[in-house]
């Protein structure tokens, strides 16, 4: 069986992987308890969509908006820099999604 994921508030549309998750069924705990099929590998501490999320709509975690979707996101897939952006920090959505390293600057 896959590891668990944590959903903080009922209205959240993302959950957080409590350990590295493999494609397949995941146990969601926290604000609601249910099982969800995820379609890709999710690293520990990363988020995945609990529902389909349309481009331009809010990503909700802790019951608040933590950014907006930059494209349609399918339930059970990874939610990170390449499919969402901050409403404040315009730089962060241009960073490498896996390492977080800047791609908008060259050292010489």
């Amino acid at each position: 069986m896959n590891g668990k994921a944590f959903q903080i508030e009922k209205q959240d549309n993302v959950a957080i992987a409590l350990s590295e998750l493999q494609p397949g069924l995941v146990n969601i705990i926290g604000a609601q308890c249910k099982e969800l099929e995820i379609s890709m590998r999710i690293s520990e501490g990363h988020k995945f969509a609990l529902y389909d999320i349309k481009a331009g709509t809010a990503i909700i975690k802790y019951g608040v908006c933590i950014g907006v979707a930059t494209r349609d996101i399918v339930a059970g897939t990874w939610v990170h820099l390449d499919c969402m952006k901050s409403l404040f920090d315009e730089r962060s959505s241009h960073l490498d999604a896996v390492t977080g390293k800047p791609k908008d600057i060259k050292y010489e």
Partner: peptide
């Protein structure tokens, strides 16, 4: 042009300053 969030935070799964702020 610097918010209190860094590459290590992003690599750890945080996607935006708003998300880190709420935490």
């Amino acid at each position: 042009r610097q918010y209190s969030v860094s590459p290590g935070n992003f690599a750890g799964g945080l996607s935006t300053i708003e998300e880190k702020s709420m935490g």
